[in-house]
Design a protein around this nucleic acid. Structure first.
Lengths: 231, 231
DNA sequence: ACCTGAACACCGTTCAAGT
DNA sequence: ACCTGAACACCGTTCAAGT
Protein backbone atom coordinates (compact mmCIF):
# COMPACT_ATOMS: atom_id res chain seq x y z
CA UNK A 1 0.00 0.00 0.00
CA UNK A 2 2.76 2.54 0.70
CA UNK A 3 4.02 1.93 -2.84
CA UNK A 4 0.71 2.51 -4.64
CA UNK A 5 0.58 5.26 -7.31
CA UNK A 6 -1.95 7.22 -5.25
CA UNK A 7 0.62 8.01 -2.57
CA UNK A 8 3.37 9.04 -4.98
CA UNK A 9 2.60 12.73 -4.84
CA UNK A 10 2.92 12.76 -1.04
CA UNK A 11 6.44 11.37 -1.17
CA UNK A 12 8.08 13.17 -4.05
CA UNK A 13 10.50 14.61 -1.54
CA UNK A 14 11.13 11.90 1.02
CA UNK A 15 9.77 12.74 4.44
CA UNK A 16 9.08 16.38 3.74
CA UNK A 17 5.31 16.29 4.31
CA UNK A 18 5.21 16.11 8.08
CA UNK A 19 2.01 17.07 9.87
CA UNK A 20 1.07 16.86 13.56
CA UNK A 21 -1.35 14.06 12.68
CA UNK A 22 1.30 12.01 10.89
CA UNK A 23 3.66 12.44 13.85
CA UNK A 24 0.97 11.32 16.31
CA UNK A 25 0.16 8.27 14.17
CA UNK A 26 3.84 7.31 14.00
CA UNK A 27 4.08 7.77 17.79
CA UNK A 28 1.13 5.43 18.31
CA UNK A 29 2.71 2.80 16.05
CA UNK A 30 5.94 2.92 18.06
CA UNK A 31 4.11 2.98 21.40
CA UNK A 32 2.08 -0.09 20.37
CA UNK A 33 5.30 -2.09 20.17
CA UNK A 34 5.64 -1.76 23.95
CA UNK A 35 9.00 -2.43 25.51
CA UNK A 36 10.34 -3.90 22.27
CA UNK A 37 10.87 -0.51 20.70
CA UNK A 38 12.05 2.51 22.66
CA UNK A 39 9.91 5.62 22.15
CA UNK A 40 12.71 8.08 21.41
CA UNK A 41 12.92 11.13 19.20
CA UNK A 42 15.47 9.34 17.03
CA UNK A 43 13.23 6.27 16.61
CA UNK A 44 10.35 8.56 15.73
CA UNK A 45 12.43 10.21 13.02
CA UNK A 46 13.18 6.78 11.55
CA UNK A 47 9.49 5.82 11.59
CA UNK A 48 8.65 9.05 9.77
CA UNK A 49 11.52 8.81 7.29
CA UNK A 50 12.67 12.24 8.44
CA UNK A 51 15.41 13.79 10.48
CA UNK A 52 14.90 13.11 14.21
CA UNK A 53 14.70 16.82 14.96
CA UNK A 54 12.03 17.54 12.35
CA UNK A 55 9.25 17.04 14.92
CA UNK A 56 10.38 20.18 16.74
CA UNK A 57 8.82 22.16 13.92
CA UNK A 58 5.38 20.81 14.97
CA UNK A 59 5.63 20.27 18.74
CA UNK A 60 7.38 22.43 21.31
CA UNK A 61 9.01 19.41 22.95
CA UNK A 62 8.51 15.71 23.55
CA UNK A 63 6.16 16.39 26.48
CA UNK A 64 3.75 18.33 24.29
CA UNK A 65 3.80 15.50 21.75
CA UNK A 66 3.09 12.97 24.51
CA UNK A 67 0.10 14.99 25.71
CA UNK A 68 -1.31 15.03 22.19
CA UNK A 69 -0.76 11.31 21.76
CA UNK A 70 -2.36 10.66 25.15
CA UNK A 71 -5.42 12.67 24.16
CA UNK A 72 -5.69 10.60 20.99
CA UNK A 73 -5.65 7.49 23.17
CA UNK A 74 -8.47 8.86 25.33
CA UNK A 75 -10.47 9.37 22.15
CA UNK A 76 -9.89 5.74 21.18
CA UNK A 77 -11.07 4.63 24.64
CA UNK A 78 -14.18 6.82 24.52
CA UNK A 79 -15.17 5.57 21.08
CA UNK A 80 -15.23 2.02 22.47
CA UNK A 81 -17.99 2.93 24.96
CA UNK A 82 -21.51 2.12 23.66
CA UNK A 83 -24.45 4.48 24.06
CA UNK A 84 -27.45 3.94 26.30
CA UNK A 85 -25.69 2.58 29.38
CA UNK A 86 -26.72 3.55 32.89
CA UNK A 87 -24.19 5.39 35.06
CA UNK A 88 -22.62 2.30 36.62
CA UNK A 89 -22.20 0.54 33.29
CA UNK A 90 -20.76 3.72 31.77
CA UNK A 91 -18.11 3.96 34.50
CA UNK A 92 -17.24 0.26 34.14
CA UNK A 93 -16.96 0.65 30.37
CA UNK A 94 -14.73 3.71 30.78
CA UNK A 95 -12.50 1.85 33.23
CA UNK A 96 -12.16 -1.16 30.94
CA UNK A 97 -11.53 0.94 27.84
CA UNK A 98 -8.95 3.10 29.64
CA UNK A 99 -7.05 0.07 30.85
CA UNK A 100 -7.15 -1.51 27.39
CA UNK A 101 -5.79 1.58 25.69
CA UNK A 102 -3.07 2.10 28.31
CA UNK A 103 -1.91 -1.51 27.93
CA UNK A 104 -2.00 -1.14 24.15
CA UNK A 105 0.30 1.92 24.24
CA UNK A 106 2.14 1.42 27.55
CA UNK A 107 4.87 4.03 27.11
CA UNK A 108 2.34 6.81 26.82
CA UNK A 109 -0.07 5.29 29.31
CA UNK A 110 2.56 5.22 32.00
CA UNK A 111 4.05 8.63 31.24
CA UNK A 112 0.66 10.33 31.43
CA UNK A 113 -0.55 8.80 34.70
CA UNK A 114 -0.01 12.01 36.64
CA UNK A 115 -0.76 14.50 33.90
CA UNK A 116 -3.68 16.42 32.52
CA UNK A 117 -3.84 16.66 28.73
CA UNK A 118 -6.20 19.66 28.79
CA UNK A 119 -7.30 18.65 25.32
CA UNK A 120 -10.68 17.83 23.79
CA UNK A 121 -10.92 14.13 24.59
CA UNK A 122 -10.03 14.73 28.21
CA UNK A 123 -13.00 17.12 28.37
CA UNK A 124 -15.18 14.28 27.08
CA UNK A 125 -13.90 11.93 29.82
CA UNK A 126 -14.56 14.52 32.53
CA UNK A 127 -18.05 15.15 31.16
CA UNK A 128 -18.74 11.40 31.13
CA UNK A 129 -17.68 10.88 34.76
CA UNK A 130 -19.48 14.01 35.96
CA UNK A 131 -22.61 12.88 34.14
CA UNK A 132 -22.37 9.51 35.88
CA UNK A 133 -22.00 10.85 39.42
CA UNK A 134 -24.78 13.40 38.82
CA UNK A 135 -27.07 10.65 37.51
CA UNK A 136 -26.21 8.66 40.63
CA UNK A 137 -27.55 11.55 42.69
CA UNK A 138 -24.53 13.53 43.84
CA UNK A 139 -24.57 17.33 43.65
CA UNK A 140 -22.23 20.30 43.74
CA UNK A 141 -18.91 19.93 45.49
CA UNK A 142 -19.65 16.34 46.42
CA UNK A 143 -20.03 15.51 42.72
CA UNK A 144 -16.78 17.36 42.01
CA UNK A 145 -14.77 15.54 44.70
CA UNK A 146 -16.07 12.13 43.68
CA UNK A 147 -15.38 12.83 40.02
CA UNK A 148 -11.76 13.57 40.98
CA UNK A 149 -11.58 10.44 43.11
CA UNK A 150 -12.71 8.30 40.18
CA UNK A 151 -10.62 10.07 37.54
CA UNK A 152 -7.40 10.20 39.55
CA UNK A 153 -7.69 6.65 40.87
CA UNK A 154 -8.42 5.21 37.43
CA UNK A 155 -5.60 7.16 35.82
CA UNK A 156 -3.12 6.15 38.53
CA UNK A 157 -4.09 2.50 38.47
CA UNK A 158 -4.08 2.23 34.71
CA UNK A 159 -0.74 4.05 34.48
CA UNK A 160 0.73 1.71 37.08
CA UNK A 161 -0.31 -1.33 35.05
CA UNK A 162 1.11 0.21 31.88
CA UNK A 163 4.41 1.02 33.57
CA UNK A 164 4.72 -2.56 34.75
CA UNK A 165 4.48 -3.77 31.14
CA UNK A 166 7.54 -1.70 30.27
CA UNK A 167 9.96 -3.43 32.61
CA UNK A 168 12.21 -5.98 31.01
CA UNK A 169 10.92 -9.53 31.09
CA UNK A 170 13.25 -10.51 33.95
CA UNK A 171 12.05 -7.81 36.33
CA UNK A 172 8.40 -8.59 35.47
CA UNK A 173 8.91 -12.29 36.09
CA UNK A 174 10.62 -11.60 39.42
CA UNK A 175 7.74 -9.38 40.56
CA UNK A 176 5.09 -11.84 39.40
CA UNK A 177 6.68 -14.83 41.07
CA UNK A 178 7.33 -12.99 44.33
CA UNK A 179 4.15 -14.43 45.87
CA UNK A 180 5.41 -17.91 45.12
CA UNK A 181 8.97 -17.27 46.22
CA UNK A 182 9.92 -14.53 48.70
CA UNK A 183 6.47 -14.42 50.31
CA UNK A 184 6.43 -18.20 50.81
CA UNK A 185 9.71 -18.10 52.70
CA UNK A 186 8.74 -15.43 55.20
CA UNK A 187 9.10 -16.04 58.97
CA UNK A 188 5.73 -17.43 60.19
CA UNK A 189 6.26 -15.93 63.66
CA UNK A 190 6.67 -12.36 62.43
CA UNK A 191 4.27 -12.63 59.47
CA UNK A 192 1.45 -15.00 60.43
CA UNK A 193 -1.13 -13.45 58.07
CA UNK A 194 1.17 -13.68 55.04
CA UNK A 195 1.99 -17.28 55.91
CA UNK A 196 -1.65 -18.21 56.46
CA UNK A 197 -2.82 -16.68 53.17
CA UNK A 198 0.17 -17.42 50.92
CA UNK A 199 -1.84 -19.75 48.70
CA UNK A 200 -4.69 -17.29 48.20
CA UNK A 201 -2.26 -14.39 47.63
CA UNK A 202 -0.50 -16.24 44.82
CA UNK A 203 -3.78 -16.89 43.05
CA UNK A 204 -5.14 -13.34 42.90
CA UNK A 205 -5.43 -12.12 39.29
CA UNK A 206 -5.05 -8.61 37.89
CA UNK A 207 -8.66 -8.78 36.70
CA UNK A 208 -9.94 -9.46 40.21
CA UNK A 209 -8.00 -6.51 41.60
CA UNK A 210 -9.15 -4.12 38.90
CA UNK A 211 -12.78 -5.23 39.25
CA UNK A 212 -12.66 -4.82 43.02
CA UNK A 213 -11.22 -1.32 42.65
CA UNK A 214 -13.81 -0.18 40.11
CA UNK A 215 -16.65 -1.63 42.17
CA UNK A 216 -15.26 0.16 45.25
CA UNK A 217 -15.44 3.48 43.41
CA UNK A 218 -18.96 2.81 42.14
CA UNK A 219 -20.37 1.65 45.45
CA UNK A 220 -18.85 4.62 47.23
CA UNK A 221 -20.71 6.98 44.90
CA UNK A 222 -23.88 4.96 45.44
CA UNK A 223 -23.51 5.10 49.21
CA UNK A 224 -22.90 8.85 49.24
CA UNK A 225 -25.89 9.43 46.98
CA UNK A 226 -28.12 7.35 49.28
CA UNK A 227 -26.88 9.30 52.31
CA UNK A 228 -27.63 12.52 50.47
CA UNK A 229 -31.16 11.44 49.61
CA UNK A 230 -31.67 10.44 53.23
CA UNK A 231 -30.92 13.97 54.47
CA UNK B 1 30.62 15.94 63.06
CA UNK B 2 32.19 14.49 59.93
CA UNK B 3 35.44 16.17 60.95
CA UNK B 4 35.62 14.78 64.51
CA UNK B 5 38.65 12.66 65.42
CA UNK B 6 36.47 9.62 65.93
CA UNK B 7 35.71 9.46 62.24
CA UNK B 8 39.26 9.98 61.06
CA UNK B 9 40.02 6.29 60.62
CA UNK B 10 37.05 5.92 58.29
CA UNK B 11 38.32 8.58 55.92
CA UNK B 12 42.06 8.03 55.70
CA UNK B 13 41.53 7.34 52.03
CA UNK B 14 38.88 9.73 50.80
CA UNK B 15 35.64 8.04 49.84
CA UNK B 16 36.99 4.52 50.07
CA UNK B 17 34.69 3.29 52.84
CA UNK B 18 31.48 2.81 50.92
CA UNK B 19 28.79 0.57 52.34
CA UNK B 20 25.27 -0.21 51.08
CA UNK B 21 23.91 1.75 54.03
CA UNK B 22 25.96 4.85 53.24
CA UNK B 23 24.85 4.69 49.61
CA UNK B 24 21.18 4.40 50.60
CA UNK B 25 21.53 7.35 53.00
CA UNK B 26 23.13 9.48 50.30
CA UNK B 27 20.32 8.46 47.92
CA UNK B 28 17.71 9.57 50.43
CA UNK B 29 19.44 12.93 50.87
CA UNK B 30 19.42 13.52 47.12
CA UNK B 31 15.84 12.26 46.74
CA UNK B 32 14.69 14.63 49.49
CA UNK B 33 15.76 17.57 47.33
CA UNK B 34 12.97 16.70 44.90
CA UNK B 35 13.11 18.15 41.44
CA UNK B 36 15.91 20.54 42.45
CA UNK B 37 18.56 17.84 42.28
CA UNK B 38 18.54 15.08 39.68
CA UNK B 39 18.91 11.61 41.14
CA UNK B 40 21.68 10.36 38.84
CA UNK B 41 24.58 7.99 39.36
CA UNK B 42 26.99 10.87 38.84
CA UNK B 43 25.23 13.05 41.41
CA UNK B 44 25.30 10.16 43.85
CA UNK B 45 29.05 9.80 43.37
CA UNK B 46 29.45 13.50 44.20
CA UNK B 47 27.33 13.16 47.35
CA UNK B 48 29.47 10.21 48.45
CA UNK B 49 32.79 11.84 47.56
CA UNK B 50 33.54 8.84 45.38
CA UNK B 51 33.72 7.93 41.74
CA UNK B 52 30.24 7.69 40.20
CA UNK B 53 30.75 4.07 39.27
CA UNK B 54 31.81 2.97 42.77
CA UNK B 55 28.22 2.08 43.66
CA UNK B 56 28.30 -0.79 41.16
CA UNK B 57 30.49 -2.66 43.66
CA UNK B 58 27.52 -2.71 46.08
CA UNK B 59 24.40 -2.80 43.88
CA UNK B 60 23.88 -4.70 40.65
CA UNK B 61 22.36 -1.66 38.96
CA UNK B 62 20.40 1.50 39.68
CA UNK B 63 17.13 -0.40 39.83
CA UNK B 64 18.37 -2.62 42.65
CA UNK B 65 19.52 0.48 44.54
CA UNK B 66 16.11 2.10 44.04
CA UNK B 67 14.34 -0.97 45.41
CA UNK B 68 16.53 -0.84 48.53
CA UNK B 69 15.92 2.87 48.99
CA UNK B 70 12.18 2.34 48.51
CA UNK B 71 12.17 -0.35 51.18
CA UNK B 72 13.91 2.04 53.53
CA UNK B 73 11.13 4.56 52.84
CA UNK B 74 8.48 1.97 53.67
CA UNK B 75 10.24 1.43 56.99
CA UNK B 76 10.12 5.15 57.68
CA UNK B 77 6.39 5.18 56.92
CA UNK B 78 5.68 2.15 59.13
CA UNK B 79 7.59 3.61 62.06
CA UNK B 80 5.26 6.62 61.97
CA UNK B 81 2.20 4.45 62.66
CA UNK B 82 1.29 4.27 66.38
CA UNK B 83 0.30 1.02 68.09
CA UNK B 84 -3.14 0.16 69.37
CA UNK B 85 -5.24 1.46 66.48
CA UNK B 86 -8.27 -0.42 65.18
CA UNK B 87 -8.20 -1.68 61.59
CA UNK B 88 -9.71 1.42 60.01
CA UNK B 89 -7.38 3.79 61.84
CA UNK B 90 -4.39 1.58 60.93
CA UNK B 91 -5.26 1.75 57.25
CA UNK B 92 -5.77 5.51 57.41
CA UNK B 93 -2.44 5.93 59.19
CA UNK B 94 -0.67 3.75 56.62
CA UNK B 95 -2.18 5.76 53.78
CA UNK B 96 -1.16 9.09 55.32
CA UNK B 97 2.36 7.90 56.16
CA UNK B 98 2.87 6.42 52.67
CA UNK B 99 1.80 9.63 51.01
CA UNK B 100 4.04 11.68 53.30
CA UNK B 101 7.10 9.57 52.60
CA UNK B 102 6.48 9.50 48.83
CA UNK B 103 6.16 13.29 48.76
CA UNK B 104 9.31 13.60 50.87
CA UNK B 105 11.35 11.49 48.40
CA UNK B 106 9.40 11.98 45.18
CA UNK B 107 11.95 10.53 42.74
CA UNK B 108 11.86 7.15 44.45
CA UNK B 109 8.16 7.33 45.28
CA UNK B 110 7.25 7.80 41.65
CA UNK B 111 9.71 5.24 40.27
CA UNK B 112 8.47 2.53 42.60
CA UNK B 113 4.73 2.96 42.04
CA UNK B 114 4.47 -0.19 39.93
CA UNK B 115 7.15 -2.27 41.63
CA UNK B 116 7.47 -4.75 44.42
CA UNK B 117 10.54 -4.35 46.62
CA UNK B 118 10.33 -7.93 47.97
CA UNK B 119 12.28 -6.73 50.98
CA UNK B 120 11.60 -6.79 54.69
CA UNK B 121 9.62 -3.58 55.13
CA UNK B 122 7.31 -4.49 52.27
CA UNK B 123 6.52 -7.68 54.18
CA UNK B 124 5.57 -5.55 57.16
CA UNK B 125 3.20 -3.44 55.02
CA UNK B 126 1.54 -6.54 53.58
CA UNK B 127 1.16 -8.01 57.06
CA UNK B 128 -0.40 -4.76 58.29
CA UNK B 129 -2.98 -4.58 55.50
CA UNK B 130 -3.81 -8.29 55.74
CA UNK B 131 -4.23 -7.94 59.50
CA UNK B 132 -6.62 -5.04 58.93
CA UNK B 133 -8.86 -6.79 56.41
CA UNK B 134 -8.90 -9.96 58.55
CA UNK B 135 -9.85 -7.93 61.62
CA UNK B 136 -12.60 -6.36 59.52
CA UNK B 137 -14.00 -9.83 58.95
CA UNK B 138 -12.80 -10.92 55.49
CA UNK B 139 -11.42 -14.41 54.96
CA UNK B 140 -9.38 -16.43 52.50
CA UNK B 141 -9.32 -15.30 48.88
CA UNK B 142 -11.60 -12.37 49.63
CA UNK B 143 -9.06 -11.06 52.13
CA UNK B 144 -6.29 -11.58 49.56
CA UNK B 145 -8.10 -9.73 46.76
CA UNK B 146 -9.02 -6.81 49.01
CA UNK B 147 -5.49 -6.58 50.35
CA UNK B 148 -4.27 -6.25 46.75
CA UNK B 149 -6.94 -3.67 45.98
CA UNK B 150 -5.80 -1.53 48.92
CA UNK B 151 -2.06 -2.00 48.37
CA UNK B 152 -2.08 -1.44 44.62
CA UNK B 153 -4.45 1.52 44.75
CA UNK B 154 -2.49 3.24 47.52
CA UNK B 155 0.84 2.65 45.79
CA UNK B 156 -0.50 3.89 42.45
CA UNK B 157 -2.12 6.98 43.92
CA UNK B 158 0.84 7.91 46.07
CA UNK B 159 3.25 7.34 43.15
CA UNK B 160 1.11 9.54 40.93
CA UNK B 161 1.23 12.39 43.45
CA UNK B 162 4.99 11.99 43.80
CA UNK B 163 5.50 12.01 40.03
CA UNK B 164 3.52 15.23 39.77
CA UNK B 165 5.93 16.91 42.19
CA UNK B 166 8.81 16.14 39.82
CA UNK B 167 7.53 18.13 36.86
CA UNK B 168 9.08 21.52 36.40
CA UNK B 169 7.23 24.37 38.02
CA UNK B 170 5.74 25.53 34.71
CA UNK B 171 4.12 22.19 33.89
CA UNK B 172 2.78 21.90 37.44
CA UNK B 173 1.31 25.37 37.35
CA UNK B 174 -0.32 24.69 33.98
CA UNK B 175 -1.93 21.49 35.28
CA UNK B 176 -3.08 23.12 38.51
CA UNK B 177 -4.64 26.11 36.84
CA UNK B 178 -6.37 24.03 34.16
CA UNK B 179 -9.62 24.08 36.12
CA UNK B 180 -9.54 27.85 36.15
CA UNK B 181 -8.50 28.17 32.52
CA UNK B 182 -9.14 25.51 29.89
CA UNK B 183 -12.08 24.02 31.78
CA UNK B 184 -13.75 27.42 32.19
CA UNK B 185 -13.65 28.06 28.45
CA UNK B 186 -15.27 24.83 27.37
CA UNK B 187 -18.35 24.83 25.08
CA UNK B 188 -21.44 24.81 27.38
CA UNK B 189 -23.50 22.97 24.75
CA UNK B 190 -21.13 20.02 24.47
CA UNK B 191 -19.99 20.00 28.11
CA UNK B 192 -22.91 21.11 30.28
CA UNK B 193 -21.75 19.27 33.42
CA UNK B 194 -18.25 20.76 33.28
CA UNK B 195 -19.74 24.20 32.78
CA UNK B 196 -22.26 23.78 35.59
CA UNK B 197 -19.68 22.57 38.09
CA UNK B 198 -16.64 24.63 37.04
CA UNK B 199 -16.57 26.52 40.34
CA UNK B 200 -16.76 23.40 42.49
CA UNK B 201 -14.17 21.62 40.34
CA UNK B 202 -11.63 24.40 40.80
CA UNK B 203 -12.02 24.25 44.56
CA UNK B 204 -11.39 20.55 45.12
CA UNK B 205 -8.21 19.97 47.14
CA UNK B 206 -5.74 17.08 47.00
CA UNK B 207 -6.61 16.26 50.61
CA UNK B 208 -10.30 15.86 49.82
CA UNK B 209 -9.52 13.51 46.94
CA UNK B 210 -7.10 11.40 48.95
CA UNK B 211 -9.51 11.17 51.90
CA UNK B 212 -12.38 10.16 49.63
CA UNK B 213 -10.23 7.46 48.03
CA UNK B 214 -9.05 6.01 51.34
CA UNK B 215 -12.59 6.04 52.76
CA UNK B 216 -13.82 4.30 49.60
CA UNK B 217 -11.32 1.47 50.17
CA UNK B 218 -12.23 1.16 53.85
CA UNK B 219 -15.99 1.20 53.37
CA UNK B 220 -15.71 -1.39 50.60
CA UNK B 221 -13.95 -3.75 52.98
CA UNK B 222 -16.59 -3.04 55.60
CA UNK B 223 -19.41 -3.71 53.17
CA UNK B 224 -17.92 -7.00 51.98
CA UNK B 225 -17.35 -8.11 55.57
CA UNK B 226 -20.97 -7.33 56.45
CA UNK B 227 -22.19 -9.27 53.42
CA UNK B 228 -19.99 -12.16 54.48
CA UNK B 229 -21.37 -12.18 58.01
CA UNK B 230 -24.89 -12.07 56.58
CA UNK B 231 -24.39 -15.36 54.69
C1' DA C 1 8.29 27.81 6.03
C1' DC C 2 10.10 23.73 6.92
C1' DC C 3 13.89 20.14 7.12
C1' DT C 4 18.80 18.82 7.96
C1' DG C 5 22.75 17.50 10.55
C1' DA C 6 26.32 18.65 13.50
C1' DA C 7 26.80 19.61 18.09
C1' DC C 8 25.83 20.05 23.15
C1' DA C 9 24.95 18.55 27.62
C1' DC C 10 23.44 14.98 29.51
C1' DC C 11 22.22 9.65 30.86
C1' DG C 12 23.47 4.36 32.92
C1' DT C 13 26.87 0.98 32.57
C1' DT C 14 31.25 -1.72 31.33
C1' DC C 15 35.89 -2.85 31.83
C1' DA C 16 40.79 -2.61 32.06
C1' DA C 17 43.79 -0.48 35.20
C1' DG C 18 45.12 0.77 39.53
C1' DT C 19 45.71 0.20 44.96
C1' DA D 1 38.46 -6.66 47.44
C1' DC D 2 37.28 -2.46 46.24
C1' DC D 3 37.80 2.09 43.69
C1' DT D 4 39.04 4.77 39.48
C1' DG D 5 38.45 6.83 35.09
C1' DA D 6 38.18 6.41 30.33
C1' DA D 7 34.99 4.87 27.20
C1' DC D 8 30.59 3.24 25.09
C1' DA D 9 26.04 3.54 23.59
C1' DC D 10 22.62 6.01 24.37
C1' DC D 11 19.18 10.34 25.59
C1' DG D 12 16.40 15.29 24.36
C1' DT D 13 17.23 19.60 22.39
C1' DT D 14 19.46 23.75 20.02
C1' DC D 15 20.95 26.23 16.17
C1' DA D 16 23.23 27.58 12.04
C1' DA D 17 22.84 26.04 7.47
C1' DG D 18 20.39 24.52 3.72
C1' DT D 19 16.06 24.26 0.33
Amino acid sequence: MPKSPATKARSKRAGSQLTPGAIIDASLRIAARGSEDAFTVRRLGEELGADPTAIYRHFRDKDELLLSVADHMLGEALDAIPDGLDWKARLRALADASLAVALKYPVVGSAMASRTTRRSNEFRVVELILGAVLEAGLEGSEAAVHYRMIGDTLLAYVGQQAAFLLFDADARAADNSAWNREYRLVDPQRFPHITGLSGELAEVTDEQIFDATVEALISTVEKRAAAHRGV
